[in-house]
Design a protein around this nucleic acid. Structure first.
Lengths: 362, 362
DNA sequence: ATGAAAGCGCTAACAT
DNA sequence: ATGTTAGCGCTTTCAT
């Protein structure tokens, strides 16, 4: 209900026979007028159904929206299903709450080029979470004359950033597997570009990936395995556009079908790894005896599954991003927050067995 | 970066020697001016670093914010941890996305009376999710001259609503347990009022609960059990302020400690029930042999645990709330959407065993 | 303690 | 196809 469009500050002032300033002060600077007058103003306001100063008009005048915009590269609803994104959101909302700021989720359908929603967002700044280098919504955000903080990707000069050292993080994993003795590996990765693609990703595609994070993780893996003599060109890298357990499962199936000799599947996310675990089970492969599977992120479900993975502080990332954006100081910018990661040795990685062992038992 | 505060539509128009209308049209009504002129406008805009029409000024003029506000009764970050709230959010975000609308999460700390965030929210309407009757933020929302849709609670005349039939839903559960033979029951419920309280809730407290949903569920349980001769006054109802698995656990412990003769614990949420399951395990009680435990909501973790519960379509609730708010039509209001629920018979409910059986085995 | 004047930056009739 | 005129509703110096 409440569909009238009635009293304004001006009409209220007129009714009261006072100036608009006085009415404004009644709401915003109680100490600037006598308690009696203030009470009279507020009472009359109630009587006339005046809802208080219009927030939009106020924002226009004060140049403050009281909200932070969040740009994701996915459908909004996706964010509520991906545990890592969720952790980020939780952290970000914590920071917003601390600052009394609202959090505006900006719809940015990755399938469309529509950036109107970015233009329309009445916010004091944007947090950009994990979008590709060439995302048009990002471009629209950067045109807005407000501060921007990027989380994870892309990394853009001159912009505040929060993230982790992806290369370092996944290198720990690579070294762990190398130490265990794995040389025949396969990789499952998330989407590398905005256009849908499901299947093997050539090294060229890997290098051209517009998703910075994936690109760097793959590059770091390549480097680590090349150092022990693995020909990266021969390492199957399977890409999936959708980030779901079932895409992980299908990707792993595809991988094991075409390259059954792999002894380990490295996944660039826990979600994909969880799917890979399913795929292994479906094929009757035991993990880690027959096959090693590793993830990335350290989500709860991964922990539950005993996944060997890399834990990153997703909640802290969100909080740090929010703080960076909301913190008054903007002196020696751009600023960067780099958070720590941690190798989690679960029960899904073990030394490889030889082909013979795998087929004929130990 | 991007911290200049430069060109406006007017300055751009001046620079170009055209009217502001023309510049405005270049952005909002491309068909209203020649392509060449439009290109000239846009090019000059880029050159001057004009970021396009200011969204706040536009909102003021058009009386459209392009965003929906969401009011929760909890800290924002809580919403990202409660599976039911999350489902609701997902549904709501789906509806917003469809309409190209943003979703503004309004910080509304339940501990404070601060409603400024509600006043400051530049939105075209509010969705209110499960807040108590006397929530000051809700009052602030209702003063705003914008449409409001309430989900679950409270139920306020004249306001659009979406929800379920709580009494009916939990009655199904009550009848199920009654049929199994349970007469000695205990109940775990969520907070009944805004002020923190943890422990037994008297019938008076139950009846005065400012959380509508809990009140109705308890009332329906009372009615159902009274019909089979149970003295509701004697039924222990344990309340918990925090909605977490561990509060469920402690509440169940408290219940079983003080009333070990209960054969069933009915919980008004799955989260609490999951905690009750833990408590039973800690005491060495087998579920359902020694103790029946039931939940409410139908969250994924409940399903995983085989919980006997009532499933409600949380995602649909969110979507319906969003649609109700965004749907152009506002004729024969108020409107109400009542969604269906479903009894899920899991493996945590069975006929009670007598006290003797329980102590000495079958 | 209260008021007058001057916009914040934009869009929407209504001309032309 | 482009310009003129009027605000949207508010806050903020600066006076008084």
């Amino acid at each position: 209900m409440n569909a009238r469009r009635p009293a304004t500050l001006a009409s209220l002032a007129a009714e009261l026979g006072v100036s608009r300033t006085t009415v404004s002060n009644a709401y915003n600077r109680p100490d600037q007028l006598s308690p009696e007058l203030r009470k009279r103003v507020l009472d009359t306001a109630r009587r006339l159904g005046y809802p208080g100063p219009d927030p939009v008009a106020r924002s226009l005048r004060t140049r403050k929206a009281g909200a932070v915009g969040l740009l994701l590269t996915e459908n909004l609803s996706y964010a509520f299903r991906d545990p890592a994104a969720l952790g980020f959101l939780e952290g970000l909302s914590l920071a917003c709450e601390d600052a009394g700021s609202g959090l505006l989720l900006v719809p940015a359908n990755p399938e469309r080029e529509e950036v109107a929603s970015v233009h329309r967002a009445g916010v004091d700044g944007f947090v950009v979470y994990s979008v590709p280098d060439d995302d048009p919504h990002l471009a629209a955000v950067m045109e807005r004359p407000v501060p921007v903080v990027v989380c994870d990707q892309p990394s853009i000069d001159n912009l505040d950033r929060v993230g982790i050292d992806d290369a370092h993080a996944i290198k720990l994993m690579a070294e762990h597997l190398i130490e265990l003795g794995h040389r025949k590996i396969g990789v499952l990765c998330m989407r590398l570009a905005r256009a849908r693609n499901d299947g093997p990703a050539s090294t060229q595609r890997q290098e051209n990936a517009s998703f910075h994070v994936q690109r760097r993780r793959l590059a770091a893996l390549a480097e680590a395995f090349r150092e022990v003599g693995v020909d990266w060109e021969q390492v199957p890298v399977i890409e999936r556009f959708d980030h779901t357990v079932s895409s992980g499962e299908s990707a792993a199936s595809q991988l094991l079908e075409s390259t059954p000799e792999v002894t380990a599947i490295i996944c660039t996310s826990d979600i994909l790894a969880l799917g890979a675990l399913n795929a292994a089970r479906n094929r009757g492969s035991r993990v880690p005896e027959d096959l090693t599977v590793t993830g990335f992120d350290g989500i709860v479900d991964a922990e539950r599954a005993g996944l060997t993975t890399v834990r990153q502080p997703v909640l802290e990332k969100g909080r740090a991003a929010g703080r960076l954006l909301l913190d008054t100081g903007e002196p020696g910018r751009p600023r960067e927050v780099r958070l720590e990661t941690q190798l989690v040795t679960g029960s899904t990685a073990a030394p490889p067995r030889s082909i013979e062992e795998r087929w004929f038992g130990p």
